[in-house]
Design a protein around this nucleic acid. Structure first.
Length: 441
RNA sequence: GGCGCGUUCGUCUAGUGGUUAGGACACAGCCCUCUCAAGGCUGGUGCACGGGUUCGACUCCCGUACGCGCUGCCA
């Protein structure tokens, strides 16, 4: 009988969830779901200097937003808890004693160190293959510290103890830990235990090839939450960084990824985070939203950006937002895209003014005003027919009047379908805005 | 410095000895069209370098260069 697949994500609470950490969590989660195993969340808060409450909240929030539910861990419980390292000291004491009794521990200036057996250690990594580390030279591989003089623990030790105690079967983590792995294996062996299987995944780099750090705002999951990205899109994009379905597909829903996810398809080289591609992929997901989903997200986004939606009838807001569906990639584009629906004081874009508020367009805009004011049914179809006939009367293409009209009414050269937007705005607003625009040139 | 890992279009990647080196994002042009998107079509740019092995290397081996990681009483 095959042992149960048990993986873990073990972040330290630094105050936010790093995008690279999120991907590590995602790969662990995918692996667990694929195999019907358990995904464990463990908080590595051995460094007391760091805060806990808000920092841990950021981790929970980020994981939940991405849909990475954990089977064991804080809030979820589980038979191997507690899941905060700060609460596991007694356990660590016990293992320390075992190591001491076996002669592996010595004191150095008050700190405790693990005495390396000084041998070659082969790391047989699922992603990286077999790697031979020669730990025989103390000068190049010093004995690692496992406990500080103040009694607090060092990562290498507690990480190993917890993986052992929590019966972790596979350790899937960033490649920055690859060089640490032989040391971890030494501890497992000193304890007479079998190390888990390792899979080290490539790092995510910035555009300039440097490691994504807290200084880069795009390095935090929180950034994507705030900017109105869709969690499904972010998750999908993260999967594409270092992992490939091998069949040229880019957009895959999460159930499909669970089905085909395999550590063997993870690449070896680091990946650069490409905001443009995420932006595109988010648009792919945004266009697939149902009208109701789109409305809810759009409404929330506009409201949080300060647009006073309460002053408008729900029917109006709904119709207005509907004209934006399919047009935007991320919801933070929305305020700029459709803000004109919610204020009569539209700002005219300077480029638009110089291009379309011209002497020859003034009579055209006047003609449009006349034609629209004569309309009884102010709907998109009627508006379209009217504008087209007006254009032909003026002896031009409809584009010639569409541009100045759009600018007059929305202040911008780009936006939703003009005919539909005019209908939503309503005759009164439209005529008022055209009159106002007519005074500008 | 030592040790480890990596290197296919600008970016993410497919590719495991013989391919016109494929796809996607981005970019440019065209089509569609009320603008913008979306969609369709077209285009340019890539196997880091040098040696081997082989009838034949992007693919295998060895070097070099460059990048990254570790080398903490951070995780």
């Amino acid at each position: 009988m095959k042992p149960e697949v048990r993986v873990r994500f073990a972040p330290s609470p630094t105050g936010y969830l790093h995008i690279g950490g999120a991907r590590t969590a995602l790969f662990n989660w995918l692996f667990a779901r694929h195999h019907g195993g358990k995904f464990v969340l463990r908080i590595e808060d051995t460094d007391i200097k760091r805060n806990t409450e808000e920092a841990m909240a950021a981790i929970y929030e980020g994981l939940q937003w991405l849909g990475l539910n954990w089977d064991e861990g804080p809030h979820a419980g589980g038979e191997f808890g507690p899941y905060l390292q700060s609460e596991r000291t007694e356990l660590y004491e016990r293992y320390l004693k075992k190591l001491q009794d076996a002669g592996y521990i010595f004191e150095d200036q008050g700190a405790l160190r693990f005495r390396s057996p000084r041998e070659h250690v082969i790391v047989d990594d699922i992603v990286c293959g077999k790697i031979d580390f020669d730990l025989s030279n103390p000068a190049t591989h010093p004995d690692m510290t496992i406990r500080r003089p103040d009694g607090s623990w060092i990562f290498h030790f507690v990480n190993v103890i917890d993986d052992l105690e929590m019966k972790i079967s596979h350790v899937i983590r960033g490649e920055d830990h690859l060089s640490n792995t032989p040391k971890h294996i030494e501890i497992f062996r000193a304890l007479g235990a079998t190390p888990p299987q390792y899979a080290h995944i490539p790092l995510i780099l910035n555009r300039d090839g440097t490691k994504m750090s807290k200084r880069d705002e795009g390095a935090r999951v929180e950034y994507y939450i705030r900017r109105g990205y869709l969690p499904a899109a972010v998750g999908n994009y993260l999967c594409l960084l270092g992992w490939s379905p091998k069949d040229n597909r880019e957009k895959l829903d999460i159930d499909e990824i669970i089905r085909i996810f395999d550590l063997k398809n993870i690449g070896r080289s680091s990946a650069t985070f490409d905001p443009d591609k995420l932006h595109w992929l988010n648009g792919e997901y945004a266009r697939e939203l149902s009208d109701a989903e789109f409305y809810d997200l759009a409404f929330a986004r506009l409201k949080s950006s300060g647009v006073k939606l309460d002053k408008f009838p729900e029917k109006y807001v709904r119709a207005a937002l509907q004209t934006c569906k399919g047009k935007i990639n991320t919801f933070d584009e929305l305020p700029a895209y459709c803000g004109f629906y919610f204020t009569n004081d539209v700002d005219y874009s300077p480029e638009g003014v110089s291009k379309h508020f011209s002497a020859e367009n003034k009579p055209r805009l006047k003609a449009v005003r006349e034609a629209l004011s004569a309309l009884e049914e102010f709907n998109a179809a009627e508006i379209e027919a009217t504008l087209k006939s007006t254009a032909s009367k003026l002896g031009g293409k409809v584009g010639a009047i569409v541009h100045p009209t759009r600018l007059a009414v929305t202040g911008s050269n780009v936006g939703p379908s003009l005919y539909h937007l005019l209908e939503v705005l309503g005759k009164e607003r439209v005529l008022t805005r055209i009159d106002r625009a007519l005074t500008k040139f």
